[in-house]
């Protein structure tokens, strides 16, 4: 699974999203590289918590009842699978995700592309930005990254998030969006 995914990632790793006209491609930006490390740490913490809890559950299950070897084997296999998925999600997924996340501020608006298998390009026109947030958690603060949240009056995409931006970049983007919006409001 990870092999297939990382193979695809390396193809896309050039920073040029597929499916867009060539002249547009060079304007796409990637988020801050340190966000991958931050994501990995968060992922590892999550994986560790889940795996320790799972191990405790299995151990107590073993001690309290004496399950048949088949059942024990099934439980251990499930645990192993869970561990594999969590570790992949903690270690490889952030990098893959990083290679598939782009944004740009164009004339059309603020655009985000993301998605590894299911890809999505979303455009928020400048005049439609209702307000914006820049959010930072404790982990993000230590890596100096932040999440930009753009709110529109829409329904399906009432808020569009882009995490992993360098904090200053997030603030710059926010100012640019609000500024541009104010300017276009007078049209």
């Amino acid at each position: 699974m990870s092999h297939e995914a990382s193979g695809e990632g390396s193809r896309e790793g050039s920073g040029e999203p597929s499916g867009v006209p060539r002249e547009e491609a060079d304007r796409w930006q990637q988020v801050a590289p340190q966000s991958v490390t931050a994501e990995r740490i968060a992922g590892w913490i999550f994986a560790a918590v889940v795996l320790v809890a799972g191990a405790v559950a299995i151990l107590s299950f073993l001690l309290l009842s004496s399950p048949s070897p088949v059942l024990l084997g099934l439980v251990l296999a499930a645990y192993g699978l869970l561990a594999a998925v969590l570790i992949w999600a903690a270690h490889w997924h952030p990098a893959l995700n990083y290679r598939h996340t782009f944004y740009q501020l164009s004339d059309a608006g603020f655009e985000i592309r993301r998605g590894i298998l299911w890809r999505r390009r979303i455009t928020v026109p400048h005049a439609r930005v209702q307000h914006t947030d820049v959010a930072q958690g404790p982990l993000e603060r230590s890596f100096d990254i932040g999440k930009l949240i753009v709110y529109t009056a829409g329904t399906q995409n009432a808020s569009v998030e882009l995490g992993g931006l360098a904090f200053t970049t997030a603030c710059e983007l926010r100012d640019a969006l609000i500024g541009r919006r104010e300017a276009s409001d007078g049209v």
Binding site: Q29, Q104, L105, E172, A176, L177, E182
Partner: peptide, 18 residues
């Protein structure tokens, strides 16, 4: 924040920071 500015320049500034 500061005065409204052109969006493209905002993106340029963002690129530098990246």
């Amino acid at each position: 924040r500061r005065v409204p500015r052109d969006g493209r320049r905002g993106a340029g500034a963002a690129a530098e920071l990246v």
